[in-house]
Design a binder for these strands. Structure first.
Lengths: 347, 347
DNA sequence: GTCTGGCACTCTCGATCGACGAGTGCCAAG
DNA sequence: CTTGGCACTCGTCGATCGAGAGTGCCAGAC
């Protein structure tokens, strides 16, 4: 008994099942694939595959369905990432080129991924922690409030309003704002965010007693940007694609939608990538720790300028998905987005 | 035959149907409501209501279900917006107070609305067109690129990167940026966006030949902010609540999710409010022109500082919804958000 | 004139049953 | 080790049937 053939059979089962959404039997298998052996032989192989826990029969007389472990073997050993057609590549490029700013890039990316894969797309905003401060702007709002606008090298912009507790609209106030603005940019501009945060904290002590409160407010607001849950943001698209999936899936759609609204857990999930940052990571069904997503697979990859990955993106769909093409799409999009970030940043 | 009683019957039908999700019959009606008449009488009234097109029987021997027209009568004439409990009011306030910036306000609002009404919540970002420019910041990116950061009075911040076509990193470049920044803020700060846009366009002509290209790039990017589809943004939450609704609804969930992803049409819908800006607007089922949303109702209201409404928010759910409490929640949230915008802006 | 109880009628829903078919496991032979 | 054959299992589909809910209508009461 050749193990090779058994794996061929597994591959054929996965492929057929992905295409038809129905349990696949031995007869249909030999008809659709030229395996060179008879149905009976295939049946023997299938019995073994079932023993190994790679496939499973919903009931006595239905065909077989791959288990999560079966998909895992398929993804790891039986499939190659299918390269996209040049037309598809071009379409991706064109669609993303038009973006005018980071929000737009993220927005277009998530829509693109969703329509490309016909699944739910997930795109994380570039993490602040892993970015470099480009500029910090202070804009007076009302008499004592200050809007702090933080601009980082990925093009991401964060804002925050603080109450400085003193009048800023008079001449001394304006001078204070100008001086604070100059001093924080002096130490923070061009510096990795985390470094900037500590430098800024030290800066507070150097400030005159009178102005310290204002400086303090600004610095702590900037520090907050890291801690706050808003540091990490995620955007979704293509939820409608969940409804398109098979009827068996319809039932679980509620929990899935709920899980998708928990951005915090979603981000944690997205953050757990494989070791090699240049590889697409696949999490299949129950490999996934999040309640509600155990009948889905997540195909994700990091993106970002240069070697450093500043965030992740991916798609989520039923475990019965076309892994090779999905993985190809995710990888292609991640690479394009990385390129675009590179262009837009050019320190 | 009293028309009054017929309307009481309609009200009772709507209330029961909303609660039980099942067609309501004459017998159940007299049991649950003290109408003071017998089931037979109610049946006669129901026959008339059906003639008027306000209710409808799914089949001969099931109870009656309100039609869209029936809900319309209910909303317009038979129900009062149910005031929220003081606890609820407090919870709304507390939840929204914590917001640190506009993104956060919008984010919290949409989540709050979704969990309050257990339906899909929709919140539009304050329109730029109806806002006032507070400050425009220019930040050099790379050697020839410029990031333009537009800050308006609602706290909304928009960014955009343009290529000025000339080196900005040398001394003359820096001087140019400073001068452009000063001049555009001089004419634009504190001015309604639309006015600022025209003033800025005029400004281009006053600039020296040499620097005109740079000024031109900045001004046209700012002008774009208006035209681009990004001018209007919308945020959703609570899609999972769609799955929670009755089983009859599950089938239509796909088209609904699709319609929700069409932000442009969604925005158009949200923009069509009633005449009185202080009133909750309700669009019921087929009153709604958007394909896919014809089995849903939209309860919406404008919000914004002062008398001017800068945007809308609302919730979307099955036509069979609890209108009085939903309307109350939407109104309460809209008012709170308006208040918060007022506080944060205080020109 | 309006309301009410009674009654026959209609229609859906759920359970039951049986035929059908797909698919399997096993076995004996190649 | 492979293959064709064969008996067996089990879920699906369709038809049938009874129960129950709800109605419309009518004749009588107020």
């Amino acid at each position: 008994m050749s193990e090779d053939r058994r794996l061929m059979v597994l591959r054929a089962i996965v492929q057929d099942y992905v295409q038809t959404s129905e349990p696949v039997g031995s007869k249909a298998l030999v008809e659709r694939h030229h395996l060179g052996v008879s149905a009976a032989t295939v049946r023997n192989d299938m019995a073994l595959l079932e023993e190994e826990g790679l496939i499973h029969a919903p009931h006595t007389s239905a065909g077989r369905v791959p288990t999560d472990a079966g998909y895992r073997v398929f993804v790891d050993r039986l499939s190659a990432v299918k390269p996209l057609s040049s037309g598809e590549r071009r379409a991706i490029g064109q669609f993303l080129e038009g973006a005018v700013d980071l929000d737009d890039v993220v927005d277009r990316t998530v829509r693109l991924l969703a329509s490309l894969t016909r699944q739910v797309a997930v795109v994380q905003y570039p993490s602040l922690t892993r970015s470099t401060v480009r500029h910090i702007e202070l804009v007076p709002m009302g008499s004592s409030h200050l809007m702090i606008v933080l601009i980082v090298n990925t093009g991401r912009v964060e804002q925050r309003v603080v109450d400085t507790g003193r009048v800023l609209s008079d001449a001394t106030g304006e001078a204070l704002v100008a001086s604070v603005r100059a001093r924080i940019n002096e130490v923070a501009a061009g510096v990795p965010f985390t470094v900037a945060a500590t430098r800024l904290r030290r800066l507070v002590d150097d400030v005159d007693e009178a102005d310290r409160a204002a400086m303090e407010a600004v610095v702590s607001a900037l520090g907050d940007a890291l801690v706050e849950e808003r540091e990490e943001r995620v955007v979704l698209a293509g939820q409608a694609n969940l409804a398109r999936a098979g009827t068996d899936f319809q039932r679980t759609i509620g929990p899935i939608l709920e899980a998708l609204e928990e951005h915090v857990t979603l981000l944690r999930l997205l953050g757990q990538l494989g070791d090699d940052p240049d590889l697409v990571s696949v999490r299949i069904g129950s490999e996934n720790p999040v309640t509600g997503l155990q009948s889905t697979s997540l195909v994700s990859m990091g993106y970002g300028s240069g070697a450093e990955r500043v965030a992740s993106l991916g798609v989520l769909g039923p475990t019965r998905m076309d892994y090779p093409t999905t993985m190809a799409s995710v990888r292609a999009v991640a690479r394009y987005v990385s390129e675009i970030l590179d262009e837009n940043q050019a320190t």
